[in-house]
Design a protein around this nucleic acid. Structure first.
Length: 743
DNA sequence: TGTGTACACCCAAAG
DNA sequence: GGTGTACACA
């Protein structure tokens, strides 16, 4: 989500010539998308067509024309960032901060609703939202009685199954027998049910539950549903192609009002659907007209972001996909053909990192800001090579979406302390802190506390308290745990008297948690203390501890010193919705991109999603898109040959400039300059890299050959870049001759 | 009860 | 190649 690059500068000039000034300077399609306020509307918004602008202007238009009050509009996004931007821009249009809006992520909005109606699903309004870590620990505990073969059915896998069910709106009761048999010898549903029961006991829910519980309430409580029907006159949805089933159900329940039109406007782009692996159903957007009969569709196809070469390359690529609603991006900048998209072949992943970072440096020298450059990788592990190189040459960078702030150990510990104060039933939090810092509580002692809690049917902290009072445990350990419980209780007093900031400072200090890090001699310790300070500082922005905890669970992001211009390093998924002048796209190799795993699991559908991801990557670029592929890459510990991605062949020649591909393609043995590029001794590479095979074969049809990955096969065809080989497995592949050994 | 060591596993990711 | 987990040991 970015400020539109439409040449028409400020969104709303105060000079109101004809009617509503905020509608001026919009193209006709955008204007239709904004002015079609009533009824159902699907806006198919291609990359860079001013989607955010349409959404925010539409929101403002509804308000300014008096169709609804601010709180009568439900506006849903996927990320906090998108929500924040929308809020800011709406505030800008209205000329005042937008307060009291139902604008947020699916999860934040559901959390807000669930706090109101928690009792319908057996929770209280102060329920805790667990993160992935807690979920996993809880599930492991719940799984124990089943004595599942943990090797065959690992807990994360089962958690995935449960999440998938939740994504589809399936409570344990709604999971059918046939679904159940797939995992953990048919016990998955039962474990799921036990997991949900346990969550309820802890007065907690996971992210999936936020959607699931609320949807279940809306399904079963007509009175509640009616309340929202009367409240929300208009619904706006961003990134509709990313919705999963439960989100779809939630939206449909809220939108379908009896006797009133469904004023729902969904904005999305089927070509940018890249989240099927987390439950998103592209079908939701493909089916929109059926779900909302009489729906109108508006296509935004005028792209104001990228040059014609970039658009042409992206369009040529995405045209290889089957199921599409069909949309052709046209450049809104008629004059800007720009540079062709470059495709550069390099020796290996190290050379790739060098090539990319050197190019970034060169762009910088030419006056481009690092803030306008990004390296977009398929998978997180690829960032390392670039990081190393960037550090080496001293180019400032930021990793977007790596370890998030609240996922760090010290932050999670501190939050667990706060949760234990705020919510005494939160056993997971208490378990996390009981021996952090070390208080001599091992598995055996913990077992006793658990047993005491179970016997009395109270939470773990209360059970521990009881056992201590009765003298069931003794010694130094008992004293220390008693101290912890005392601190928790005095913190609650302070919380009531002096507010949450003082209380938390007391808590972290008196529990010995801060001392634990002060006494830690590891190099990370000072940074961790710094993070903790920042956490406490952030507390002050919230009225209550409860509000803060909710914010952290759902929203917390960590933007460190944003001052200096930095090169961005992130995954393609993370880059969706962003744009940069210059985009580097490394790792376009078979197995990496498209990812082997996706191909194995998803087949053609998986491939098409990968292609959409490639499309997303290219369309992030405003001026330059630079694609790279390496001849060999280190995977885990060893070097593996890699061949250029099939996507490279799908880029239309007229929009692409291919460079230096001799280094990886065609010639089997040509000790070209690229070999020496890195200054590494040749001998150390010779063994590792198949490109230095001692043959320069001239291949002929019918030749028997061997490929390092696919084994033995016969050449059945050839073109300029590739040989077509049929292998023993029966598979036919188009391969680069440099990887093929003549037999 | 804390620790050391062998191993298995891993590479998509937001809330 | 790094990391997290599961066991054996002092």
């Amino acid at each position: 989500m970015t400020t539109s690059e439409h040449p028409s500068s400020p969104l709303f000039s105060s000079s109101s010539g004809e009617g509503e000034s905020y509608l001026a300077r919009l193209n006709p399609e955008q204007r239709t998308a904004i002015e079609t306020t009533d009824g159902s509307l699907l806006v198919l918004a291609g990359a860079g067509t001013g989607k955010t602008r349409v959404l925010t202007t539409r929101f403002a238009h509804i308000l300014l024309t008096g169709r609804a009050k601010p709180w009568q509009i439900l506006a849903v996004t996927f990320t906090n960032k998108a929500a924040r931007e929308m809020r800011e821009r709406i505030g800008f249009i209205l000329g005042e901060p937008a307060e009291g809006l139902w604008l947020g992520t699916f999860h934040a909005l559901c959390a807000r609703m669930l706090r109101r109606h928690a009792e319908y699903v057996g929770l209280t309004h102060s329920f805790t939202i667990l993160d992935t870590d807690d979920q996993l620990r809880l599930l492991k505990q719940v799984m124990e009685p089943w004595r599942i073969d943990i090797k065959r059915w690992p807990a994360p896998g089962l958690l995935g199954v449960i999440q998938r069910w939740k994504d589809r709106g399936l409570t344990p009761e709604r999971v059918t027998d046939t679904e159940d048999s797939d995992f953990a010898d048919g016990h998955a549903r039962a474990i799921y049910a036990a997991y949900q029961t346990r969550l309820r006991q802890l007065n907690a829910c996971d992210f999936g539950d936020l959607m699931l519980h609320v949807t279940e309430i809306l399904r079963t409580r007509p009175d509640v549903l009616d309340q929202y029907h009367r409240l929300f006159r208009y619904i706006l949805v961003d990134e509709y192609q990313d919705t999963n089933t439960v989100q779809y159900l939630w939206l449909r329940l809220l939108a379908k009002r009896s006797g009133a039109p469904s004023n729902i406007c969904c904005v999305g782009d089927d070509d940018q659907s890249i989240y099927s692996w987390r439950g998103a159903e592209v079908e939701n957007i493909l089916r929109f007209e059926k779900d909302f009969p009489g729906a109108q569709i508006v296509r935004l196809e005028r792209n104001y972001r990228s040059t014609q070469h970039i658009l042409g390359a992206a369009a040529g690529l995405i045209a290889h996909n089957g199921e599409r609603l069909g949309k052709t991006l046209r450049s809104g900048k008629e004059d800007a053909r720009g540079e062709k998209v470059t495709v550069t072949g390099v020796w290996d992943s190290d050379a790739e990192a060098r090539a990319v970072c050197d190019a970034a440096e060169k762009f910088k020298a030419q006056g481009h800001s690092l803030a306008e450059m990004a390296i977009l990788v398929r998978a997180g592990f690829q960032t390392r090579a670039f990081e190393e190189r960037l550090v080496q040459i001293g180019l400032p960078y930021r990793i977007v979406g790596g370890l998030r702030f609240y996922e760090r150990a010290e932050i999670r510990d501190a939050l667990a302390y706060m949760r234990a104060v705020h919510q005494p039933a939160d056993d997971l939090a208490f378990e996390r802190i009981i021996n952090t810092p070390k208080r001599g509580v091992g598995p055996a002692a913990l077992q006793k506390f658990h047993a005491a809690a179970r016997a009395r049917e109270v939470p773990l902290s209360a059970g521990t308290q009881a056992l201590l009072t009765e003298g069931g445990v003794k010694g130094k350990m008992a004293d220390q745990v008693r101290k912890l419980l005392d601190v928790l209780s005095t913190t609650r007093d302070i919380l009531a008297r002096e507010g949450h900031v003082v209380a938390v400072e007391h808590l972290l200090e008196e529990s010995g948690y801060l001392d634990m890090w002060r006494n830690d001699r590891s190099p990370e310790a000072p940074g961790r203390l710094e993070n903790l300070k920042e956490l406490v500082r952030a507390l002050a922005d919230f009225g209550t501890l409860g509000e803060f905890l909710e914010h952290v669970a759902l929203v917390m992001e960590h933007d460190e010193n944003a001052g200096e211009a930095k090169l961005s390093l992130m995954t393609l998924h993370g880059a969706k919705g962003l744009e940069f002048d210059i985009v580097f796209l490394p790792g376009w190799e078979e197995g990496v991109f498209p990812s082997q795993r996706t191909l194995d699991e998803g087949g053609l559908k998986g491939l098409e999603e990968e292609r959409r991801l490639a499309y997303v990557g290219i369309t992030r670029a405003r001026k330059h898109a630079l694609i790279y592929h390496a001849g060999s890459r280190r995977i885990y510990a060893n070097w593996q040959p890699s061949m250029p991605s099939r996507f490279l062949d799908e880029l239309p020649e007229e929009h692409v400039a291919r460079q230096n591909e001799g280094a990886t393609q065609r010639r089997g043995l040509n000790l070209s300059d690229s070999v020496f590029e890195g200054g590494m001794p040749l001998t150390s590479r010779r063994r590792q890299d198949p490109l230095l095979a001692e043959t320069t074969p001239a291949f002929q049809l019918g030749d028997h050959v061997r490929h390092p990955r696919f084994g033995v096969g016969i050449i059945i065809g050839a073109d300029r870049h590739h040989l077509e080989v049929v292998f023993e497995s029966g598979d036919t592949k188009r391969l680069l001759s440099s990887f093929i050994e003549k037999l």
